[in-house]
Design a protein around this nucleic acid. Structure first.
Lengths: 176, 176
DNA sequence: ACATCTATTTATAATTT
DNA sequence: TAAATTATAAATAGATG
């Protein structure tokens, strides 16, 4: 009955892939825990799911081990130390740019919130039940992809500003 | 003949402990490799032996994943920003992440969201004119915020953000 | 979607080479 | 000291509830 094959290659079925990810991630964390207990070692594991969510394991804790590694890596490869000042300037510059961009986006949101008040689809979602809201929210994910696709087909140039806004709105993003 | 026991506690015999460490470390790294291949995930493992030597595994590479984690940590606990030696890593992370996000977007465009095909609001947007699509797209921004707001009001626990892709920078942590 | 079950594969502790 | 062997424990893919 149970045929069990074990091909180590990408699992295409999203459902099976998710199940496999969950089980194997748990298995690895368990093994890591056993290693730290049996051999008295420090261990850190960081996993980013394909959806971009972070899962971590750490013994004694994740940041202790990661910081220790970071310090070692800086001392081993000291080129990074010499670059650090310039890089910090660049990094701070980018941070300020991102911050300014966020504020700009906030202003745009506020402004257009006043403009388009009553489109057919813009109903009072406050009246929906929680599970309906969740379905709606889930469905937005797929819809967003179709919007982007259609926008591109109609105007294939890279001058589709709304595409970017749609990305900022709905896609998974770590940068805020 | 072969006695095989499995006590998960510290191995006192230094020789056996070293052998166990070597074998199990290899086993965990192998499992991690399989996970990244089969599930398309990014993973980093850092192990410090009891002698203080560092062993690492990373897919696509250790620093990419660690930097990504550090960046998230920074957003969660922004006191860490002040550590200047991390700045270059963060700067490099931003550049790589922007690139990765573009590729991610490309993948999303290709993938088809055909799960919830028949919701009342999910009409054939392909038939809309370009300017209508843009209005729709623009309006989604405000709508999303209202959804988030209502979801949080109805269920103020921390379960809600997980349902929203844009909120997935939250990380889950297991302590060993 | 989530837990449990089970056949099978995989990991590994002790031993041998 | 380390690599291969082997018997057994542990992990897990697929099925089931």
């Amino acid at each position: 009955m149970d045929k069990v094959k074990i091909p180590i290659k990408k699992i295409e079925n999203p459902n099976k892939r998710q199940v496999c990810f969950s089980k194997r991630k748990m298995g690895i964390f368990k093994k890591a825990s056993e290693l730290s207990i049996m051999c008295g070692t420090e261990i850190a594991i960081i996993v980013f799911s394909s959806a971009g969510k972070a899962f971590t394991f750490g013994s004694p804790n994740i940041d202790f081990v990661v910081d220790k590694y970071q310090n070692i890596s800086v001392h081993i490869n000291d080129k990074k130390v010499h670059k650090s000042w310039r890089s910090e300037q660049q990094y701070n510059f980018i941070l300020r740019e991102l911050d300014a961009e966020k504020k700009h986006t906030e202003m745009l949101k506020i402004q257009e919130g006043n403009k388009q008040a009553d489109s057919w689809w813009r109903r009072n979602i406050e009246d929906l039940e929680l599970h309906q809201l969740r379905e709606f929210n889930d469905s937005l994910k797929g819809l967003k992809e179709r919007i982007v696709k259609v926008l591109q087909e109609k105007e294939p140039s890279d001058k589709v500003p709304n595409e970017i806004e749609a990305e900022q709105l709905l896609s998974t993003s770590y940068m805020g």
